[in-house]
């Protein structure tokens, strides 16, 4: 872990002042970057130097830097979160790059994710989708004992697989159609396989899909790029389950 190896890189970073401004790539030379740096630490170094030169540093979202908060993310050389699979940008390390590489860093691009600044995008569409049904309406208090309803380990594990979604938006970024199906289906799936979620399953899937559509995400055309870039390995099986849930709900719903 203590290799003193450093590399030099040419970065092409997307710079955009605000949602309505035109953006362009800025070429930045990053010198003597330790290969033990994370990608975001590399950007920290770049920003630090820019700040010393009184330039406006590159804005990028980040928080936990442990790959769990879902705040960070950019498209690195054409791949959301960069070349290492099942890894968020903050956990991607520079040893995955070679000396002299040119690295394109772009924001997650989708109409539903307007750019706030540089690499920062507005993913509030995800919150609005969840607000339409990504929950079980159990109010605080007045619920049965936790062990009152046994849930098969298989279903519990399936729910957990789906629930691992960190809402980073890489699925949308990677989808050729900028579709939010993987994100939406992960929540629909989690709650669909649990008995607690069954009560509201019909309304949930109808409302969440309707909100997803109105946020101007694209449609799923089963490329599975979302699954390939997902840092938490959320499976497209969830999309299938949501399709099933949706068809069922369309048939049985009373309105």
């Amino acid at each position: 872990m203590s290799s003193e190896k450093t590399i030099n890189l040419t970065l092409k970073v997307w710079r955009q002042k605000g949602p309505t401004d035109a953006g362009k790539f800025q070429t930045i030379h990053a010198k003597d970057i330790s290969v033990d740096c994370s990608f975001l630490e590399m950007l920290d170094i770049v920003n630090d130097e820019m700040a010393r030169g009184d330039q406006d540093p590159v804005a990028f979202d980040h928080d936990c830097r442990e790959g769990i908060c879902g705040m960070c993310g950019a498209v690195v050389n054409g791949i959301a979160h960069g070349p290492q699979s099942e890894t968020t940008l903050c956990q991607l390390h520079m040893r995955k790059f070679n000396n002299g590489d040119t690295i394109y860093v772009e924001p997650f691009r989708a109409k539903a994710f307007p750019i706030v600044k540089d690499l920062v995008v507005d993913r509030s569409a995800f919150d609005r989708i969840i607000a339409k049904g990504g929950f079980i309406s159990a109010k605080t208090g007045g619920v049965p004992d936790a062990n009152a309803i046994p849930i098969s380990k298989v279903n519990s594990d399936l729910a957990m697989d789906a629930a691992g979604c960190i809402g980073c938006g890489a699925c949308v970024a990677a989808c050729p159609n900028a579709s939010a199906m993987l994100f939406t289906s992960a929540k629909v799936s989690q709650l669909a396989v649990l008995p607690q979620g069954a009560v509201e399953r019909t309304e949930r899937v109808l409302n969440m899909v309707s909100q997803m559509d109105s946020e101007q995400f694209g449609n799923c055309s089963n490329h599975y790029e979302c699954e390939a870039v997902c840092p938490k390995a959320i499976k497209v099986e969830n999309i299938a389950r949501m399709n099933r849930e949706y068809l069922r709900a369309s048939v049985v719903s009373r309105d």
């Binding site: 619920v143 049965p144 936790a146 380990k153 519990s156 957990m160 607690q196 979620g197």
Partner: peptide, 12 residues
């Protein structure tokens, strides 16, 4: 109890 009712997938 509350978390299970919300669909938190605790290990089983």
């Amino acid at each position: 109890d509350q978390c299970v009712a919300q669909g938190v997938p605790f290990a089983r």
